[in-house]
Nucleic acid binder design. Sequence first.
DNA 1: ACACAACCGGACAGCCCATTCCACTTGGCT
DNA 2: AGCCAAGTGGAATGGGCTGTCCGGTTGTGT
Lengths: 227, 227
Amino acid sequence: MEPSPESPSCERARRLRSDAEQNRERIVEAARAVYRREGLGGSMAHIARTAGVGIATLFRRFPDRSELVAAVFEDAMEANLAAAVEARGAADAWEGFSGYIETVCGLQAENRGFAEVLTMNFGSAKGLERRRQEAFDAFLELIDRAKAAGRLRADFTPEDFLILLMANAGVLGAAGDAAPEASRRLVGQMLRAFAAEGSGDLPPSPSPKRLLRGIVRRRRASGAASA
Amino acid sequence: MEPSPESPSCERARRLRSDAEQNRERIVEAARAVYRREGLGGSMAHIARTAGVGIATLFRRFPDRSELVAAVFEDAMEANLAAAVEARGAADAWEGFSGYIETVCGLQAENRGFAEVLTMNFGSAKGLERRRQEAFDAFLELIDRAKAAGRLRADFTPEDFLILLMANAGVLGAAGDAAPEASRRLVGQMLRAFAAEGSGDLPPSPSPKRLLRGIVRRRRASGAASA
DNA sequence: ACACAACCGGACAGCCCATTCCACTTGGCT
DNA sequence: AGCCAAGTGGAATGGGCTGTCCGGTTGTGT
């Protein structure tokens, strides 16, 4: 008989000692904060320091960076899935379609790490990829419904959505302080392009000065532009 | 009397010794290649190695990274300026407007470093910033003409263009092998959003497989997603 | 209370990077 | 031919990062 693998927080392999479990959570929390601010480029060493644990502890618990990423963003991906499912149930097909896109891009805007996660593939992280796939499936239904309702252009493809996620991540990374407005503006423009008919208002542009200031600010922050 | 500061290639401060000038050119050429492939994140050491010169030589000639970037991309920025000026002279205002946008985004697609340069500010590099400003001024005229012709939406702002450059850089960085198609598709969508009327065809989406493969590929290459 | 497996964190090795320093070489002028 | 300022490359310094090792600590079941 194995010591019932369920209870505490999840389906972890064989249950950790209580202090280890606490450390694990401190690590995930620290990584969450670091990734949100700095993107997935944040270093293991920095995360360990932030969590107040030794480096070895981090590597013992998460031998591979992608495992940590998966642990950190499973809840954000769950939020994404929930948004897709809710949108699928919306009465108005276009409302569902456009609302979902706005929500996802908003999640990206709030969290630089998640913006990157949405444009990458983590084959090994099953929970993450399952949720991503389910959300995507729901989105495919949204597409069909919005097209059937004559609100979405017939030439829209699911890849257009992925491209928008990449584009939005780029804007968020480049626009500095003005990122939220710039992102909303981008999404508004893209929705206009996707819509079959004369579509409504656009969110306002960031002011020239704000956008410029954001650009300048990035000079020292980036790892390339990082790259 | 000073030894006539003009002749060789440019208005450099006081003319280098011939071997030094040759090294300078080898450095710029190496940096051009590295930046094109890897973006501005490419390391000084790597560039020096590629150029076949000592590290000190690189730092003596370009004490600040941004000076090297300026030297490398002055010609690309000149091409950008030329495209803007030519577009300003186009007979059809919308052709000029949309053609210029396609050209600039194409320059980004060909050169990862330049894609980043276009979303950053290098206050100290006067030649670069002057050309950028002149190109932008020409673009402002394009906007006015296209709006006056009723082809460009009245709510288009110059910031929309900057946002598109950032978005395009993001797509190029994230889409891997499928980047060229993804970029063209993004530009086509945005032009649709900008156009006042029913606009024409869209470039095709990259196939789902291609786009996905690009995403996966990026896993090891990126410095963060550097950015 | 005890023993031991699980766990901890600092130290360390190996890498890459930016930046400075310095002893040596060389182009160009006389 | 010979001088010397200009120029050179490599070594050295100091930093950060990943990933592993190991002597010591602690939770936990008995």
